[in-house]
């Protein structure tokens, strides 16, 4: 496993034509940190993720991985999307091994086993449920032993039970592997359950940045997490940062 990566965005701006989607974002993410990015639709969350994933280029500003410019660093980044993006014409195991060379079959089988889907390795993706497809997508992301795992609303299309299951799985895998994780979600509860830190994006700027240091696994009946959820939701809906909300335990 490669070392986890530290990310620095310095005055990062992104515009599409006239539209300024991100405005001078300053954000440092420590090695191995699990950061959740929340915000209303269209606020620029996916754009932020795509910049860090090197799928888009900054209009201005800098992006550093372990203090080296993104383009020069050889950091292994993988991403999970809201849709699984499995190739329908490849069997499950071949989807997991996508982009690998040499003897990868055993490794792919191992990773599939770790997401509980080894029995499906020779099936077509079309025969799997939505949750199973996302597990395969997770396996495909993990086999590359990423230093940075990006998750763009990966669970938002799943039912509540499957979502809980997947949250546990993601948390467990993150704890075992220690990569840096960046999760975009609309689900504040999911953010609080999984993240070390929640960053709220509003109109292309960071409007709130709070640390959650409650012990894991987290339960909503403890550590005032339910209260925190309510306050974060209120902040998103009605604005106005209350200073005392910062660093809530």
């Amino acid at each position: 496993m490669e070392q986890a990566v530290k990310i620095d965005m310095i005055d990062g701006s992104k515009s599409f034509g006239e539209k300024n989607v991100l405005k001078k974002i300053n954000l440092t993410i420590e090695k191995g940190q699990f950061v959740a990015i929340i915000g209303k639709s269209g606020s620029g969350k996916s754009t932020l993720l795509r910049l860090v994933a090197d799928l888009e280029n900054l209009t201005s500003g800098e992006l550093l991985f372990n203090n080296t410019p993104l383009k020069e660093s050889k950091v292994n980044i993988t991403m999970m999307y809201q849709d699984s993006r499995l190739l329908p014409w490849k069997k499950i195991i071949d989807n997991v091994g996508l982009g690998l060379d040499g003897q990868w079959k055993d490794k792919a089988a191992g990773v599939l086993d770790s997401v509980g889907l080894l029995g499906y390795k020779d099936e077509w993706p079309s025969t799997l449920s939505g949750g199973q497809k996302q597990r395969v997508a997770l396996a495909r992301a993990l086999i590359h032993e990423p230093s940075l795992l990006m998750l763009d609303e990966p669970l938002s299309a799943l039912d509540a039970f499957t979502r809980l299951e997947m949250q546990n799985l993601i948390e467990e895998i993150w704890q075992n592997n220690g990569f840096t994780a960046l999760l975009v979600t609309h689900d504040v509860r999911e953010a609080i359950r999984l993240a070390d830190r929640i960053v709220l994006i509003e109109e292309g700027q960071i409007a709130m940045d709070i640390v959650i240091d409650a012990p894991r696994p987290r339960h909503f009946s403890e550590n005032n997490l339910a209260l925190l959820e309510e306050q974060v939701l209120e902040r998103i809906m009605y604005g106005e940062v209350q200073e005392r909300m910062k660093k809530i335990k």
Binding site: A53, L55, I77, M79, Y81, R85, L98, G99, R140, H144
Partner: peptide, 10 residues
Amino acid sequence: GLVEMGRMYK
């Protein structure tokens, strides 16, 4: 989306 995913996986 599939093309982008493919690029992401090198």
